[in-house]
Design a protein around this nucleic acid. Structure first.
Lengths: 136, 136
DNA sequence: TACAATACTTACTTTTGGGTAGTAATTCAC
DNA sequence: GTGAATTACTACCCAAAAGTAAGTATTGTA
């Protein structure tokens, strides 16, 4: 009920998806999900959608991420052409990361995921506290 | 360029995201991504967006997934109220999985990810073949 | 009696993810 | 001149996740 406000928007998605018989290794969904379906990856892209950022800025913003995971994820994103890396020969070192067009193109899908998260905030929080309780 | 066709749609996302200073553990993005930012999870939800399916049907469609991962992922989705499980007392056994409203609510975000994948199909395929070559 | 079908389990191995600590190259405080 | 601070990483190691392969239960059929 809380998530039905946007149901007016009609998209040909249901139709095109219905035709899809298999999601195999050669399937484009398989490939895109292998690339971006990862918590840190998505959070970093989210962060960079706000604009160019330094390593330390991302580190501060995406809380819980370790320097290693940040470096690792950025390296992957760099390799796949989602971010650009600019090094300034200063001391202490300064490195800036910027989304490429490819990276920025995730803005829309991610915006809907953002909205979805807000729509289901209560539910997600309940799930989270359940998870947390289990761990204690 | 290939992905700019939808840039007319204006959303308040950029605005609301800009205000976001940190993505901490209590952040709703952190929580939703922890839950759904996973390749098998997304592929299974995609599959079930086509309609109610049996275990074996999902197994056949989502190629590459093992019975173990399928059972595990479905169990998690069940626990978090994204799918419903219906058992028919037959031999051989029959179990049907259906998305709940919560699960179906991912239809829109996922549709955009689907579109995004198609928009960047060439790029994603190139990335994938690079990955594959590295493994051989 | 053996087999087929379905939906899982379970035990084991490999791969990946993630944390801790450390490095290099300055600048600044004392 | 010694030591701390800053920044962006790397090397090492362990634990967790994912893959592999085999097994379980049920019962009608050949």
């Amino acid at each position: 009920m809380e998530a039905l406000k946007k149901s007016k928007i009609k998209i040909p998605f249901e139709e095109s998806l219905t035709k899809k018989k298999v999601f195999d290794e050669d399937c484009i969904l398989h490939r895109s999900f292998s690339l971006i379906a990862d918590k840190w990856t998505l959070l970093i892209i989210m962060s960079l959608l706000q604009g160019t950022k330094r390593n330390s800025e991302i580190q501060r913003q995406v809380q819980g991420i370790t320097p290693k995971m940040l470096a690792q994820t950025l390296k992957t994103l760099l390799k796949y052409g989602m971010v650009e890396r600019k090094v300034f020969p200063e001391v202490p070192p300064r490195v800036e990361y910027t989304l490429t067009e490819f990276g920025r193109s995730l803005s829309e899908p991610l915006s809907l995921l953002f909205d979805w998260s807000l729509d289901w905030e209560d539910k997600l929080n309940k799930i989270y506290s359940k998870k947390k309780r289990r761990k204690l």
